[in-house]
Simulated scan of single mutants.
Amino acid sequence: MKYCVTASLLAALTLLAGCSPEVGSKAWCEDMEATPKGEWTANEARDYAKNCLFRSDD
């Protein structure tokens, strides 16, 4: 029974992860702007700075 619950949760997380925009995309930057800064992880803050603030659209 415990295995089924774990497998179900893993499957659900995998499906949800497939729906989120790619890190660094315009949609991801917009999602991050709508998220309170206190909820960002250190990696998200770094990726936001790298991909959204310092982006060069050459």
Score class of each variant (00 low, 15 high):
16 L>A: 12
55 R>C: 03
31 D>E: 15
40 W>D: 11
42 A>V: 10
42 A>W: 07
50 K>I: 12
6 T>W: 01
33 E>R: 13
9 L>N: 09
44 E>G: 06
20 S>P: 01
4 C>N: 08
48 Y>P: 00
15 L>Y: 03
14 T>D: 02
9 L>R: 09
42 A>P: 02
47 D>S: 13
3 Y>R: 00
41 T>G: 13
44 E>L: 04
58 D>A: 11
28 W>V: 01
7 A>T: 04
55 R>G: 04
2 K>F: 03
32 M>T: 09
17 A>L: 09
36 P>Y: 00
7 A>H: 00
27 A>I: 06
37 K>R: 15
6 T>F: 03
21 P>R: 02
31 D>F: 05
10 L>M: 08
49 A>Q: 12
56 S>K: 14
19 C>Q: 14
12 A>I: 14
53 L>H: 12
33 E>D: 14
35 T>N: 06
54 F>W: 02
50 K>C: 06
40 W>F: 05
11 A>P: 01
14 T>Y: 03
11 A>Q: 05
17 A>D: 13
53 L>P: 02
26 K>D: 15
34 A>N: 14
20 S>I: 12
29 C>I: 13
29 C>H: 08
29 C>A: 12
44 E>W: 05
39 E>I: 06
36 P>D: 02
41 T>L: 04
47 D>P: 01
26 K>W: 11
44 E>C: 04
25 S>M: 04
47 D>E: 15
6 T>K: 04
28 W>S: 01
5 V>E: 00
49 A>R: 12
58 D>R: 07
47 D>V: 05
56 S>Q: 11
45 A>F: 07
39 E>N: 12
33 E>H: 05
57 D>L: 10
11 A>D: 04
33 E>Q: 11
14 T>M: 02
19 C>T: 15
43 N>Y: 10
51 N>C: 06
42 A>C: 06
27 A>Y: 04
39 E>P: 01
16 L>F: 10
25 S>Y: 03
20 S>D: 07
40 W>Y: 03
56 S>V: 14
49 A>C: 08
40 W>M: 08
43 N>C: 06
49 A>Y: 10
8 S>N: 06
56 S>F: 15
43 N>L: 13
23 V>F: 01
17 A>K: 03
1 M>H: 09
3 Y>G: 00
24 G>E: 13
31 D>A: 11
4 C>Q: 13
58 D>H: 05
15 L>A: 05
1 M>W: 05
32 M>H: 07
10 L>E: 10
19 C>G: 11
28 W>N: 01
2 K>A: 09
34 A>P: 03
21 P>N: 08
36 P>V: 00
50 K>E: 15
43 N>H: 10
28 W>Y: 03
6 T>Q: 07
40 W>N: 07
14 T>H: 02
25 S>V: 11
54 F>H: 03
15 L>V: 11
